[in-house]
Design a protein around this nucleic acid. Structure first.
Lengths: 297, 297
DNA sequence: GCCGATACCTGACTAAAGTCAGCTACATGA
DNA sequence: TCATGTAGCTGACTTTAGTCAGGTATCGGC
């Protein structure tokens, strides 16, 4: 079936990922252990908290500590108490002047390596390469988005819901006042009453959606939102599919939702996903269209 | 100037190359040291000569030997004398039945990983991703082609010249008999009389071109050929540029060449490169068009 | 002011990766 | 046939990467 697609991805992984990746590492390292070079790079001219570095590089706490000591001994980095947080345990790493010089050198070499890829190509081929790279990057990002249940009280869920409110307030003709809209309580989006799904990219929240499982009534989809940074990549559609699946698996055979006339892409997506417009089933202040879909079990 | 191009390449290197590369390695390794897994994979069901493996993987001779011993101890590989070559020193590695099973498992996991990238995407996005990956791959391949002088007696040069003769014999309306064509002796393509340039991709020959530096006459470009596998990527144009540069640096201010009417892409390339058609300057049996270009020093 | 959690650190360890010198057996050309 | 070179192998070694089990200081809640 899609075996030629798979073959293409594998060829890409081998020739591009392996070869370019290895070369990039070589350029980065310049005599120093690669882990140290990466850490130095990640600290950056602005410095960084140790916990953040651990997260970004995915390193063991002890290992990171040792790497920081090594860079300190080389006079490239100083580790001291964090100034921003009131937490005395948190420490930040910052570059010394020598470290900043080294960082700039890494930056320069990274530019040089990128240029060594572009340089042999004629201008039109360069443009095509960069465009294709951007496309691959965007679509790989899309494929790395993970959708999973999350309590609506979670700070990442809160972030999404705030972003949702901000976005619709900007889009709706008459703004958006949550007090005038039909309320949705947290406990309605927690199993078994419903579920809140969070879309994350490298643990950063980039989208959400929820479904209320009304007893003796169709399930109701709410709060579908996707961050600008990953829009146009099918994340909304995946979210919708997951919400429908959740409802279907628990025995509901119909989902419905309401939406505002200004959300034209969303409306197009609902139609494309098999929703058909129905009569109003609620008195939502901001709703202009109501949709329904029969779920196949 | 092209700093946004460079930035795009760097972003690609970071997000795609690093992340996908690391994941691919993880999938490949499955408990075994990565170097062993890669070696096992590279040997393949058909087996491979030890020297070839060393070249492909870029490993130290001693290190490779040790890796082979480890795989042999695990019962996955047997190393024995080569059968093809008459050289008793050369040895080949081959997979045992257990090794073949393991290889198939690696193959399966590689498919699985590729699919894990495609799976979250909707069909149209999958198509776009694969197309963009293919484009990146092709253009990166183009950028990895190296053009350098090479004696025309080198076996790689011979390979190219044979391929050139084969290609034109297929294209020309009345075939191609080297005996009827104006001869080009090897010593005419060796400095200071001229030069032969070879284009290689990972040490494999993929193109060639030559220039004769006639005393008291324009330099003459001959034998420009590019392998099918890398056609359409600007390699021919780069070859032409290099040949012109070679002549210009040695004091020639004009280059010329002859070509056959069936080689339409080549003719288009010459025109695009600033060549203009001139009267015949020789009696080459297979030439229909003659071109000339003034070189700017 | 105490208790359990948290952020970071240290010491002790292992496995993997890679380097280098020297060895043996075979090849090649004078 | 003899010198020189080459393919692959072995032993001895270093560096890098990474893990794990404690430690110490601090925090936040009671």
């Amino acid at each position: 079936m899609s075996h030629d697609l798979i073959a293409a991805v594998r060829r890409f992984n081998r020739t591009v990922t392996q070869r370019v990746g290895a070369l990039d590492d070589e350029y980065m390292a310049r005599g120093r252990p690669l882990a140290q070079a990466r850490l130095l790079w990640e600290i950056g001219p602005g410095g960084a908290e140790v916990a953040a570095l651990r997260g970004r590089l995915g390193l063991d706490s002890g290992y990171l500590s040792r790497l920081l000591r090594a860079l300190e001994n080389d006079g490239l980095v100083t580790v001291g108490p964090a100034d921003g947080t009131g937490d005395g345990r948190v420490r930040t790493a910052a570059l010394t002047p020598a470290g900043r010089t080294e960082w700039a050198e890494l930056d320069r070499r990274s530019d040089e390596f990128a240029w060594s890829i572009l340089e042999p190509l004629a201008a039109p081929h360069r443009q095509r390469l960069v465009a294709a790279m951007a496309e691959v990057e965007r679509l790989l990002v899309a494929s790395m988005v993970v959708i999973a249940p999350c309590p609506p009280s979670d700070p990442r869920a809160r972030t999404c819901l705030r972003a949702y409110a901000r976005d619709v307030a900007r889009r709706f003709d008459d703004g958006f006042d949550p007090a005038l809209s039909n309320p949705v309580r947290d406990d309605e989006l927690v199993p078994p009453a419903g579920v809140f799904l969070l879309a994350t990219l490298n643990a950063e929240p980039v989208g959400c959606g929820a479904v209320k499982l009304h007893p003796d009534a169709p399930a109701e989809i709410k709060r579908v939102w996707v961050a600008d940074s990953v829009r146009g990549l099918g994340i909304g559609r995946r979210m919708l599919d997951e919400l429908e699946r959740y409802a279907a698996e628990r025995g509901w055979d119909t989902v419905r939702l309401d939406t505002n006339r200004t959300l034209t892409e969303a409306i197009a997506m609902y139609r494309a996903a098999g929703y058909r417009e129905i009569e109003p089933y609620n008195t939502e202040r901001y709703a202009d269209h109501w949709f329904e879909k029969r779920l196949v079990p």
